[in-house]
Nucleic acid binder design. Structure first.
Lengths: 230, 230
DNA sequence: CCAGGAATAATGTGCATACATAATAGCGGG
DNA sequence: CCCGCTATTATGTATGCACATTATTCCTGG
């Protein structure tokens, strides 16, 4: 008998009104209780629908001030950051991995700042190449804290440090950044591209609580695009 | 007034257990009812806490089968995409804007595909430069559907098309992509950089329901970084 | 032994209610 | 007229309950 009013349907209706221009930027929209009455559902259902829209930046909500459509919607784009090997497999290509260099060296300043570690401290430095169908896909330049538990037994000849870390370290927090850099001669050789070619570069640093774990730069072969829907 | 167990505190506790290694990758964690009993709150409170962690990719949940820690955590990075002017102001710099070119031209194939419009259709083509403290910040190469309502009255000499669209078109969906490209001679002149310099490039296409609205390429001056916390 | 269906166990959702919290509005006294 | 207190109002959250949805498990009949 009951019409199944789900929070998704409430959300869809809200989106419809936004798209149709019934709710215009800057304007205040009906409050939860009123929408609930109008749509025939509980206030908590409306709450969940609008809460998620606000989290996505499509609405602004303030206690006592109600809910309004933002004048300058700050849209949010979300990227999934998978393991490189899975990323390659998802494209239907065959992943490969080659360790180029491995050494213990003093941590450069940039990486030290990124993961809030001491500059100059001895860190494990890896340079590796990821292949897709035997063609260069992405170069990985990584610094790892030698005090990371369980590191001794790791063999980075065959296993990507990327994957080892995922499987062997605990949940951690960190930062990620995107930039464009020019290929150095060494990177150009690795990625089989022209020197100074523009490379999409992703910088990631991770920590587990107080302990710095790893900082990595991923240099993607020219032409690589990272895409998502809004 | 008993201890207020909030969903945030439940979430924090779950994160603590993940970080501490009490819940290890691949393992199944206690079900909602048990956690609720253990923590002294309602199941719905636990539900919300875990639901959000799952949405962030830190847990995997399946009906019957319970909740487990993913073996390969697909982390999600979220970027906020503000209006360029606000972005510049947020850096404490003074924003500027200059329209370089404006013409009606047939839509190129790449842009047509991005916003699912007809290639060759006459679109409004803008090239503009955004300045931060009078230095080049970002070049904007934009195609606009001439049938967009209200477009006639717009003056892109003084107002960024970016802002006009935000304020004058309704909510829309679309896609966004990141890449690295080499500066063309024209872009190098605009951005005051070397030709072939690596530029972080953001491509965005938006539609309002069935109607294509705009496709834009933003070429950021060399050295620009886009950053977010995980 | 196997196919297939029923019981089961977990999450997903909706509802009504109560209370908490924050920001505004309004009022009063100086 | 302004300052500060208080009342109001809309959102935020916790709870208990019921039922929906899905995989899984298990059982049953062939």
């Amino acid at each position: 008998m009951r019409s199944p009013i789900t929070w998704q349907s409430v959300q869809a209706e809200a989106l419809r009104r936004l798209r149709a221009g019934l709710w215009t930027p800057g304007a205040r929209i009906p409050d939860e209780a009123e929408l609930a009455r109008e749509l025939g559902c509980a206030r908590s259902t409306v709450n969940r629908a609008l809460r998620e829209l606000a989290a996505a930046g499509l609405l602004e909500r303030r206690r006592k001030g109600g809910t309004r459509v933002p004048l300058t919607p700050v849209r949010k784009a979300t990227f999934e950051i998978p393991i490189i090997r899975l990323d390659i497999e998802a494209r239907g290509q065959c992943p490969g991995y080659r360790l180029i260099r491995q050494a213990t060296e003093p941590l450069p300043k940039a990486e030290a700042r990124a993961m809030r570690a001491d500059p100059g401290a001895p860190f494990l430095h890896l340079l590796a190449l990821h292949l897709a169908d035997d063609r260069p896909f992405c170069a990985e330049d990584r610094w790892i804290n030698p005090e990371t538990p369980g590191l001794d037994g790791a063999d980075f000849e065959t296993l990507s440090a990327n994957e080892w870390l995922v499987g062997n370290t605990l949940f951690s927090d960190g930062a990620i950044g995107f930039a464009a850099t020019a290929a150095t001669p060494e990177l150009a050789a690795l990625l089989d591209c022209a020197p100074d070619a523009p490379l999409l570069t992703i910088t990631r640093s991770t920590r587990a609580g107080p302990r710095p774990i790893t900082a990595v730069r991923l240099f993607y072969a020219p032409g690589h695009r990272l895409e998502t829907r809004l």
